[in-house]
């Protein structure tokens, strides 16, 4: 459905995308992760014909967007960065414009416009000129226009960017619903919890190269380190923290507050019980012992750290 083959993009001496190979199968939702400057947006811009590739191929439903962007984008809906809209048009007019460009019949445009505006909760603004909209409203409308023609592929570049917490939740719910409807979704995001919540698979890139591409569950299992929060009934003194940091499997330990510390631990899940017993044996009266942070976040930090 989406296939990147030896994709390269250079800006002068800088290689933004470096021999990238990736295949997103039909009906899957893939989170596209990487630190700033990793090449995520550049890859998405190539896929949406905003910039050209230096070499390689980017196939959408088997059609190379590099050589035939019109055919390749015919079944794609995209939100890239936070797009601006023509301020003199209303949401209804904007959707009508884009629908006509895509060859949708007038009746279908009307029907889908109503559905999409309801989906993104913008019915009351349907005839207001977009020039008056906030960034969050524009972002919701951007998602709406991507869904208008019920595309087979959705390419979303940080779709919750600019939204307030409620808006973020709403957009995630939309994405989850689209996922249930078997859309193929390729989504970049900085929000790891968002990716973990909505995606089936994760592709992580850095310096334009693919570091890992696998199911989220598999990646979580592969995560080497865990962050554990230990809370005592009284203050945990520095010498005790020092001793804990030297225990087997402990990579790092530091006080979060007087009574708590965060332990970065590397080892199988079963061995955490041994760690707890060892800490208690030092006289710490442990009232809480739990993992903090997301597995995906741990994996992300591990892989990015290794690649740099």
């Amino acid at each position: 459905m989406i296939e990147l083959q030896k994709l390269n993009k250079s800006f002068g001496p800088i290689k933004a995308v470096d021999d990238l190979d990736l295949r997103v199968t039909r009906g899957t939702t893939v989170g596209f992760l990487g630190p700033n400057g990793a090449g995520k947006t550049t890859t998405i811009k190539i896929l949406t014909d905003l910039i050209s590739a230096t070499s390689g191929h980017a196939l959408l439903s088997g059609v190379d967007v590099v050589s035939d962007p019109k055919a390749a984008l015919s079944h794609v809906g995209a939100v890239v960065e936070t797009p601006e809209f023509y301020p003199y048009l209303t949401p209804v007019e904007t959707l009508s414009y884009l629908g006509r460009v895509r060859g949708m019949p007038a009746a279908e445009i009307d029907r889908r416009t109503n559905e999409v505006l309801a989906q993104i909760k913008m019915e009351q603004w349907r005839t207001t000129r977009i020039g008056k909209f906030s960034k969050g409203m524009k972002q919701r409308l951007a998602i709406g226009q991507a869904l208008l023609h019920e595309p087979d592929i959705l390419i979303l570049d940080e779709p919750t960017s600019g939204l307030d917490p409620r808006g973020m939740v709403e957009v995630r719910e939309i994405i989850k619903q689209l996922k249930k409807d078997h859309y193929t979704i390729f989504m970049s995001s900085h929000l790891l919890n968002e990716v973990e919540e909505t995606c089936d698979r994760v592709a992580l890139i850095d310096h334009g190269k693919l570091l890992v591409y696998d199911d989220i569950d598999t990646l979580a299992k592969l995560t080497k380190t865990t962050k554990l929060e230990v809370v005592g009934s009284s203050a945990i003194a520095a010498p005790l923290v020092e001793r804990i940091s030297k225990m087997p499997g402990v990579v790092h330990a530091e006080n979060a507050t007087d009574r708590s510390l965060v332990v970065t631990y590397e080892g199988p899940e079963e061995s955490r019980a041994d760690l707890l017993r060892s800490i208690q044996s030092l006289g710490v009266n442990v009232v809480s012992f739990s993992s903090v942070g997301l597995p995906l976040e741990m994996m992300y930090m591990d892989l990015v750290k290794e690649s740099r």
Binding site: L50, A72, E81, E84
Partner: peptide
């Protein structure tokens, strides 16, 4: 400059 290209260019239109 106004970033409206982000809206229009990813459409099947030359």
């Amino acid at each position: 400059q106004n970033r409206t290209g982000y809206l229009v260019f990813p459409n099947p239109m030359k």
